[in-house]
Design a protein around this nucleic acid. Structure first.
Lengths: 208, 208
DNA sequence: GTTCATCCGTGAACATTATAACAAATGATT
DNA sequence: AATCATTTGTTATAATGTTCACGGATGAAC
């Protein structure tokens, strides 16, 4: 069954919240409460959670542990992905330390950079390779997901090199530029400038 | 007139592309071409651009410089915002060096951290203050936008301190947790984990 | 046990966003 | 000057997403 992107996004939020509630040994929670904690309408929460079958109990609410496991199952991949990070600059290093990259859903197998001082090093227990050799190494290692933390100018070249390996199925890019890839490769973009611009734009509107 | 959020998001993309085209001394561009370069439908591009009046020329296309200035005007704030960054960890420092924070639309006036080694320092020509003093300093300086690059556990406390100053109108948070603020404060969230999770979820779906 | 307040699941109504379709304008060509 | 290939702006339509409203469970209180 097809699930909408906004729903998946909220599922991740539910997952986090449920983990927290579970740790607090909370037993039961209602859609109302979930909504208040996450800033969503209760009806939205119920609709999202009902996509995957009846999991709550009418008149009672959702059993925290059961719902937690359920959402966890939905989000869990059927295997551990192999990923690589391209660009070990400040942002790349920040990501290496960020909890987003500490997940059991994937293993970070390789870093790439073009700085000779970094090539050959092992950073955060991950080896760093020369960007020039990206295609071969990605292919050898069978890496399927690539995170790009490089300047806009280098993004397309890196994307091309990664895709050329033939094993890459998804790209998460932080570069502030559009990249073009074959349509079978899924691209997600995190664009800090865009979010800031949106914030300022709507602030301007509110002042007026 | 009200403009939809997805439209504003794309306006930023148009803006970037037009800057580039302008630098390349390109004179004219069509909605078709813009769409191809950004991965959008031509009709979408035309609709977005027409929200702000007739700016193209039928049978010809859009005059690059004129459109560039036009989009630039739409996105430009009516004054320079004063902003602060809370949390000078790896992610905060990455942002300090990132081009997203080099904009003429705002001035970064203060940093906040609770690390004694950083308090009192001037980092990237911006003074770093003790997080404890956040409310007073934000109020004194009249800071209106706050960027949170801190762990989830500290996010709500920092948001509360910032909002308590009474001058803050918008928050951009990188924390992986929901924060609750008065409804007159606009919050945007950049959530790296969520984007990665979404990518993996839809990859799983494609494999099946 | 009956009543009652609570709360889920769901289909329908509503709102938003994207796409398609086409008339009107433009400049090139003949 | 008339025709033609383009390309915009806009209206109509389709697709998507959110909220409402209510039937039907559930357990607590008395």
């Amino acid at each position: 069954m097809r699930v909408a992107e906004p729903t998946v996004e909220r599922l991740v939020l539910y997952y986090r919240l449920l983990m927290q509630l579970h740790n607090e040994e909370r037993r039961v929670v209602s859609s109302q409460e979930i909504g208040e904690m996450l800033g969503l309408k209760a009806s939205q929460v119920r609709k999202d959670l009902s996509y995957f079958g009846e999991i709550g109990k009418r008149g009672v609410g959702y059993h925290v542990e059961r719902l937690y496991r359920h959402v966890s199952d939905i989000l869990s991949p059927d295997r551990v992905w192999k990923i690589a990070l391209v660009g070990v600059g400040r942002l790349g290093e920040a990501l290496l330390g960020h909890k987003a990259l500490r997940s059991e859903k994937f293993r970070l197998e390789a870093l790439f950079d073009n700085d000779p001082a970094k090539i050959g090093q092992v950073i955060c227990s991950v080896p760093c390779y020369d960007s020039e050799e990206m295609t071969e190494i990605i292919r050898e290692k069978g890496i399927e997901v690539v995170i790009l933390t490089i300047p806009a100018a280098a993004a397309q070249v890196s994307a091309d090199r990664a895709v050329a390996a033939g094993t890459v199925k998804g790209i998460l890019t932080f570069a502030t530029t559009a990249i073009s890839v074959p349509e079978e490769v899924l691209v997600y973009r995190v664009d800090i400038s865009v979010e800031l611009e949106k914030l300022l734009f709507f602030l301007k509107g509110r002042m007026a």
